[in-house]
């Protein structure tokens, strides 16, 4: 039996677990943890950080120079996610400021960010996906060939085979009915993200409400979305977009993606795989 090494710690406002199997060393786990914590340090909005500095400038109506590499990568990822989700994943969406990503001018080459009106950015789940991606890369570079990384059990990255062979089997429980399962799936070198408006944990302290960009109220109907993608960042953006999507845009996101994108409307207690 391959020896497992596990690193558990709090970061990104949740419980992060790094389970590494073949080839894992304590140093590799420690480096992977530092990778997660570095993303947390760059993207947190709860203490001084490069993102907080950027938000202060944007809220003051100033253009900001961004030098932090992680924040620049996150901005890139946010821009890509906005496009990929038809505007549904929006790190600038904010009921208080009325902002959205279309008001943001991001110049990656010049390393500057500006906005057409005062607003602030919140990377939310995208940060968790980015953190897992970077931690996964650290472990791979260290020679680990089998690992499962989790941020709050709603963000998962798995690479390599399961220690007992094959893929990594997961079940997505019904967030309301503890006896029911929404979905069973196997991951193979993939990331998975779950977003829900109901269920245990949705009322956790400081958990941001799910917003549909451009609409004033938080998403209230009970729904759960699951997205599988090659990267954690992409999976996070897609699951968020799916759960906040209106029917038309949800249909566009789900089209021809029956195996990797799922949205469950729980209002009628009917599990529906679109």
């Amino acid at each position: 039996m391959t020896r497992a090494r596990i690193e558990r710690f709090a970061a990104m406002g949740t419980r992060v677990e790094l389970h590494a199997f073949d080839g894992a060393t304590p140093a590799a786990l420690a480096d992977a943890r530092r990778a997660v914590e570095a993303v947390d340090d760059a993207l947190t909005i709860h203490r001084p950080s490069p993102l907080v500095a950027l938000n202060e400038a944007l809220l003051a109506g100033r253009e900001a120079a961004v030098t932090d590499a992680i924040l620049l990568d996150a901005l890139d990822a946010a821009a890509a996610a906005h496009v990929a989700t038809f505007g549904l994943f929006d790190v600038a969406a904010d009921r208080r400021t009325g902002g959205n990503w279309t008001m943001v001018r991001f110049d990656r080459a010049g390393g500057t960010v500006a906005a057409s009106r005062p607003l602030a950015l919140d990377f939310g789940g995208l940060g968790k996906g980015l953190a897992l991606d970077r931690a996964g890369a650290v472990l791979r570079d260290a020679g680990v060939t089998s690992a499962l990384l989790s941020a709050g059990e709603s963000s998962i990255l798995a690479f390599g085979p399961h220690p007992l062979g094959g893929g990594w089997p997961f079940a997505i429980p019904h967030p309301i009915d503890a006896d029911a399962t929404l979905l069973e799936i196997e991951l193979r070198d993939q990331s998975l993200s779950i977003s829900a408006t109901v269920g245990v944990g949705t009322d956790a302290p400081e958990r941001a409400a799910l917003l549909r960009p451009g609409e004033p109220a938080a998403i209230a109907p009970p729904a759960c979305a699951v997205a599988i993608a090659e990267s954690g960042a992409a999976a996070e953006a897609l699951s968020t977009a799916l759960v906040v999507a209106d029917p038309a845009r949800a249909a566009r996101l789900l089209r021809d993606r029956r195996d990797t994108r799922f949205r469950f409307d729980l209002a009628h207690q009917e599990s529906r795989v679109a």
């Binding site: 709050g152 059990e153 990594w168 997961f170 079940a171 997505i172 779950i194 245990v200 944990g201």
Partner: peptide, 13 residues
């Protein structure tokens, strides 16, 4: 090797 029920909260009030 069993299916892992994932997506539950890691924070319980």
């Amino acid at each position: 090797k069993r299916t892992v029920p994932i997506g539950g909260a890691t924070w319980f009030p």
